[in-house]
Design a protein around this nucleic acid. Sequence first.
DNA 1: CGTGTAAGGAATTCTGACACG
DNA 2: CGTGTAAGGAATTCTGACACG
Lengths: 101, 101
Amino acid sequence: MALSLSYKDKKVISIGITSELTGLSERQIRYYEERKLVFPDRSKGGTRKYSFADVERLVDVANKMEDGMQTFEIRKEEMKKSDIRDKMLRGQLNAAFKIRK
Amino acid sequence: MALSLSYKDKKVISIGITSELTGLSERQIRYYEERKLVFPDRSKGGTRKYSFADVERLVDVANKMEDGMQTFEIRKEEMKKSDIRDKMLRGQLNAAFKIRK
DNA sequence: CGTGTAAGGAATTCTGACACG
DNA sequence: CGTGTAAGGAATTCTGACACG
């Protein structure tokens, strides 16, 4: 791990607890992973480990599913978001670089 | 649950992960519970669940053990702390009450 | 497409006890 | 006192598949 992450991002929660926290079934949670909507870590033995950020993510996904959105649409939306973030970050870095020049 | 607790206080971490996070053996963690130094929740099935606060607590305990302190001394120290907190809280409440009077 | 379920197996955790010291 | 360990059992999780739709 490069950075020491805050509680919110530490992957320490089992799927059972994650299920309780989100109200989703384990089946749903595993399926959303299959559809690339969440990315839990794995223990050496292979059990999934989620963060509180993942839990929030899953609740968000659940809401969108309720609104009739499909998994691939939700994924696209997320990809767009991180794309925007990437561009903004690059913009910031560029600006900083110019200033220092 | 009366209050909605923050991430730090939610009991969602299994003993295995807690062991990794603290560097303590599961045996040690269970023993410190026996000695009333940590108070994990339990799942319906009986498995222990710790919070990040518990993890910090355990690291603290571990440090004191290294300093040669015994479990009952650590517990006494903690009781003193919470006792002080209680008194301060009572003082606060009393003061507030007098003001409003 | 999204989710429930039964199936068989593996990983995780639990308790009580013996051991050492 | 504090901790390791083997023991037997129970709870938890995993994957791949069949089902419905």
